[in-house]
Design a protein around this nucleic acid. Structure first.
Lengths: 192, 192
DNA sequence: CCTCAAACTGGACAAGTGTCTGGACTATAG
DNA sequence: CTATAGTCCAGACACTTGTCCAGTTTGAGG
């Protein structure tokens, strides 16, 4: 029996289980793209993935958990930004934020559902949210480089999540989020 | 029959109905302070307010609607910030943001529940969210004054909501939100 | 091939949410 | 005072969500 360590559960999972989880995540993406957040249900995802509802519930405790895991995979999938030391702080932060745009590319319905799910108070979602927050902050901090700009990174992370929220509410397009955050970075970097 | 125009419904309401609605909102505040967002229910609020559940549902379609209305009333209750033309942009924005701190004063549990409710996709909540967003933006824009700083106001509004989100997730205390946004304003205003 | 423990299944289940309805109540108009 | 339109109430209702369980299937090890 070959096994693999996986983040969704704190146990070793067989290849088959890993595959079932992947199936569920992909089914989630397809399903939410058609039905939207409100129309999504764990049962619907399980049906699409060809898995029994009870099985889906052993891996994911709610639809929010499914969506949060989907988003977390997207965040992890973003490549590390190459820092160019010759550029200005704003340039470097801009490059990092532009790379983060990969997360919010694709179907807006899917992105909106994921970000909405991330606000859940369920324990499983909280943990994934923490991972995502830490990861994004790490990327921006690496791009900023010096400790002198930590304050700017703090504000920028907050602005980034605020912009995602704003996009989720339809006040901004997801494609415009990176640009907006870059503009904020320039406003804060005097060495532009 | 005396009547009053009220925002919760698009109809004229009797005094008695206005009072019932006030009772429900106050009961919501007390209830959520004890039980938190997850423990809150329309039925529980109705019981505390001494109103039948069905009646409560005629005025508010969900617990999110109750909480959003509560927050909207708080926002409306904040006095208009007096703009001091002699101060810097950052100073004026700072004064406005400090006044907005009134919204998030009081029980953090209540504030957290309200902000969480505001993320609901229900139509009733959406409308209130819109009102709140417009009102806060108007206050900051008035404080900024010149059109030159419109960009800064855009970022600041986004940062403000991002900070509220951050506080809701426990990464920041609600009392520190104004200070954080003021710091952001200073970072963006070169005429500090 | 056989054993057995683990995982999957599908259906039942309790809890919670929002809606609906018939009857009681209230206040305005005649 | 009576008629009547509108509101409120209490309970029933359909629906969804997450949990649980007994039976079946799966697959690694002997």
């Amino acid at each position: 029996m070959s096994v693999a360590l996986h983040e969704t559960r704190r146990r070793q999972l067989t290849d088959r289980q890993v595959e079932a989880i992947d199936l569920l995540i992909h089914a989630t993406e397809a399903e939410v793209d058609e039905t939207g957040y409100d129309g999504l249900s764990v049962r619907g995802v399980a049906r699409r993935a060809g898995v029994a509802p009870a099985t889906a519930y052993t891996y994911f405790s709610s639809k929010d958990h499914l969506l949060a895991e989907l988003l977390w995979r997207r965040v992890r999938g973003v490549g590390e930004t190459v820092v160019d030391p010759s550029g200005s702080t704003a340039d470097r932060l801009g490059a990092a934020v532009a790379d983060l745009g990969e997360i919010t590319s694709g179907s807006p319905a899917v992105v909106a559902a994921c970000t909405q799910a991330l606000l859940s108070s369920h324990g499983d979602v909280k943990a994934l949210r923490e991972h995502i927050g830490v990861d994004i902050r790490r990327r921006l901090a690496a791009a900023a480089g010096s400790d002198r700009d930590r304050r700017i990174v703090d504000v920028l992370v907050t602005t980034y999540f605020g912009a995602l929220l704003s996009a989720g509410m339809g006040h901004m397009a997801y494609v415009d989020v990176p640009e907006f955050v870059v503009a904020a970075a320039r406003l804060m970097s005097s060495d532009a």
